[in-house]
């Protein structure tokens, strides 16, 4: 169901290691790149594929020989300045590249976005929301723990509709998602120009191939649903 991507992870600090772990657990192929004098803490048996290059040199990056169109670049260096420089370098070498950078404040996010990062992950934003939620919305905080943070039965994921599924041409309201144990949160409708729409708006969409559904469900129901999609 998930597409396995080739991933180039720059930086292997605390954040980089967490990212690596999560990416690997989702089955992506990850290649780690670090600077020449970066200190890297690796357990000998972890089997991490680490390359050391001079980040400042274009030749070194080109020598990595990546297929930029198919890969995702993660800039997770410890220093903001390095990340920013890396985003600039990658975007100038591969204008179409998918570059994700980590940031530590709104300030940095603004600069990274300007430099051309496709998406920016704020190290502290989600954490701070989580901390505040525990104080003010304990139920929300626990629900999010169940759905997002804990590794358990419950998952949030996206599903792209292929040609000739049983959903094709049907309206969202006609399908009893809840009875299938699935909660449909958002849709990207091709006909509406790839805009993310949350389903709380009661705009009745017609589903077509190419639409993307974001759902929350238990694993067993997800597999059942996917079986049904395959049958058509």
């Amino acid at each position: 169901m998930q597409i396995q991507k080739d991933i180039l992870l720059f930086g292997y600090g605390t954040f980089g290691r967490q990212l690596y772990k999560n990416l690997r657990s989702r089955g992506h192929k990850v290649k780690v790149v670090v600077g020449l004098d970066d200190y890297v803490e690796v357990e000998s048996d972890s089997g991490v594929d680490i390359t050391r290059i001079n980040i400042k040199r274009n030749d070194d990056i080109l020598a990595l020989n990546v297929n930029a169109a198919e890969s995702i670049f993660y800039c997770a260096m410890n220093k903001t300045a390095n990340n920013l420089f890396l985003v600039l370098t990658l975007k100038s070498l591969y204008p179409q590249a998918n570059v994700i950078a980590n940031s530590n404040s709104n300030e940095t996010t603004r600069k990274l976005k300007y430099a051309g990062a496709t998406s920016v992950i704020d190290l502290y934003e989600a954490t701070s929301r989580r901390i505040v939620n525990v104080l003010t919305k304990p139920a929300v905080s626990m629900a999010l723990d169940e759905i997002v943070y804990k590794q358990n039965d419950l998952q949030m994921l996206e599903i792209e509709l292929k040609e000739n599924t049983f959903l094709e041409g049907k309206y969202v309201s006609e399908i009893k998602f809840r009875q299938m144990g699935i909660i449909l949160i958002a849709i990207i409708d091709k006909e509406l120009g790839y805009e993310l729409v949350f389903t709380d708006h009661r705009i009745n969409h017609k589903l077509d191939a190419g639409d993307i559904l974001v759902i929350v469900a238990k694993k067993e129901n997800i597999s059942k649903f996917q079986e049904m999609l395959k049958k058509g």
Partner: peptide, 8 residues
């Protein structure tokens, strides 16, 4: 960890 999960 939280940000790493999101990134992945």
């Amino acid at each position: 960890e939280v940000a790493g999960m999101m990134g992945a």
